[in-house]
Nucleic acid binder design. Structure first.
Lengths: 342, 342
DNA sequence: GTACCCCGTTCAATCGTTTGAATCTGAGGC
DNA sequence: GCCTCAGATTCAAACGATTGAACGGGGTAC
């Protein structure tokens, strides 16, 4: 008669299974882990497998971790769940983790907990490796990272001091945006950049000014305005930009949420997009195609970024440097927010 | 001389600390865990604490878990990170977990992995408790849940079979939306509901029809259209709704993402919001206030939902039932998408 | 018949912590 | 001087899995 997994309340262990199958627990362990060096008679294996199913045996992960010093968990720390950009990175990372036999868990730092505290909590012993996405670097965070005895990697963020990161070629995305605006005949192009502390914002800004120079265009300081990576931030920046003496005819906004705020603000100022101003931004989220007018964007391979981060984390020795710049599969997605200069 | 945490490569254990402090490891363990029953001379305690700092001792969580059968991790499984509604639930849950001395980790199921597989992965031994948010119930999932020997709880989802859940009063939110439209003079009110498999969609639908009846209004079947909880889903549903013979003058959309799609679709049909059609929806996200026109919404306490879920998970015995319906702090946020009937 | 080898299985140490119980050491009471 | 007792500390047995090494028995070779 089959005893269900719920029979008796105490946990089923290797020893129980071994007893039920009439073998030593070492055998059971090797069967469970599919040890290729194990020599075993087929009927014994069958007996063991039957006992496992019969008793509903589940390995105790803590015990296994204690012995092997591996937990099978990878951690990802992001600054904020409400940013849809991370949703895609997470999706790519989860898939890659799973296919390597790990499970990826995500936590956010920056709200209730400081990033540093979070790293501390998650860092030691709970996970086999840690990905840290975005956010601004802090010295305290760096100190904890240094003290960690597990591998870690920055994602979508670079750091001069620690040469372990996987990023997208954000400068290229800015180039593509400017290129598009120039092709449409624009010369009076402004940039709404992200916060100075944000690495991606810096690289997009650099890309923007480089691209402008390449086309022999000048960008007076008043044409570059900093705003948070949020809708409110974008709206505020747009207001500032449009209050200047000579208004631009086109804007490259560093972030899609900010771009939505920009659209909103321009409408409030009774400016038509793309009639009066063209708007192009970076990151192609579902949102971009559903605001009005639908946003022209540069799409970057965010899922791929997440996946590559996981693979690099697993494949690279903890002390080696990883400096990966993803620059392929960038696409300019033309929608309604950009038009030829009238 | 102080040996840094990095001196020697092997991990520092209790034994090392005990040796350095000249005491038994039992003492060190009790100091680390602040055992209140411990009797210890102040100078001994000082010596131990110094050794801990000196050697950079960090407890091995696996060993501790093995012994105590607790991991200090709570898991949250959501269907999809790109839904901003979950961002708020997570924020509330993380804060509550932290303040209870746990860390909350989140994973998504439904993309690369099936929800069931995810539960299996996360469920046994890796976490002390599991919250399952949203998504559609499956029998396989239910089976795994039943086999789990840790406490779990459904969040923002009810399930007739398993009486362990914390939800918001979604029917009330529908009531408030209808109430608002009726006050504005609307009688021809339609509803864009969510998928039939989604529990919140069901409850909002029920609330909608109830509220309509209360006001003596009829809702022909053609006035209720089902659409996914996505922008595309909303757009599609709106198209269907507006192709009917008698168009409604107001729509209650079950979900904010869908509502954005609705706005987009109405604009494409050259219908003015709120001139021709008023739109109201549930959940007040940043997005709602930044689309054009800004959406009138019913705001529900999502962070509170996350926090209460964690507390219930921790406070309630695994076999007790938890049926919690949050109905306070609902607010109708009036914006530009609703107006009095012309 | 003895030696050897290989297959299948068992032994036993180990991972680092927790925790009830045992032990030791002075000090105080009589 | 002996007993008691509380205070301070140590002992040692778990927790459950992994894994290199040892073991036993039957077959083959010579």
């Amino acid at each position: 008669m089959t005893r269900g997994p719920r029979a008796g309340t105490k946990r089923v262990t290797l020893v129980d299974v071994a007893a039920a199958a009439g073998v030593d627990k070492a055998i059971v362990s090797r069967v469970v882990n599919r040890d290729p060096t194990l020599l075993i008679r087929p009927e014994t294996r069958t007996r063991v497998e039957a006992a496992i199913v019969d008793l509903g045996y589940r390995p105790n992960l803590s015990a296994r971790s204690l012995r092997t010093a591996k937990t099978g968990i990878l951690g990802l720390v992001i600054p904020d769940f409400s940013n849809p950009v991370y949703a895609q990175i997470i999706a790519g990372a989860e898939a890659a983790a799973l296919s390597s036999g790990n499970v990826l868990v995500t936590g956010s730092a920056g709200g209730a907990v400081s990033p540093a505290a979070y790293l501390d909590l998650l860092g030691n012993g709970r996970v086999d490796g840690l990905l840290i996405a975005g956010g601004a670097p802090s010295t305290q965070e760096q100190r904890i990272l240094d003290g960690l005895d597990i591998p870690w990697l920055l994602v979508n963020r670079r750091d001069r001091k620690s040469r372990r990161y996987v990023i997208l070629d954000d400068a290229k995305s800015a180039h593509m945006a400017v290129e598009h605006l120039v092709e449409l005949g624009h010369t009076e192009i402004a940039h709404i950049a992200g916060p100075k502390t944000t690495d991606t914002a810096q690289r997009r800004l650099t890309g923007f000014t480089e691209a402008m120079e390449e086309h022999g265009l000048r960008t007076p300081a008043s044409r570059i305005v900093v705003g948070e990576y949020t809708m409110d931030g974008g709206a505020e920046a747009a207001a500032k930009l449009m209050s200047s003496r000579r208004r631009p005819t086109a804007i490259y906004v560093a972030n899609v949420a900010a771009a939505v705020g920009v659209l909103h603000q321009l409408a409030a100022l009774d400016l038509s997009v793309p009639g009066d101003v063209s708007v192009v931004t970076t990151h192609d989220t579902e949102l971009a195609s559903h605001v009005m007018p639908a946003l022209t964007t540069v799409r970057m391979p965010l899922r791929e970024l997440g996946a590559r981060a996981v693979r690099s984390l697993l494949d690279t020795p903890p002390d080696a440097q990883v400096e990966l710049l993803l620059a392929d599969d960038f696409t300019l997605v033309r929608r309604e927010s950009t038009a030829p200069l009238a």
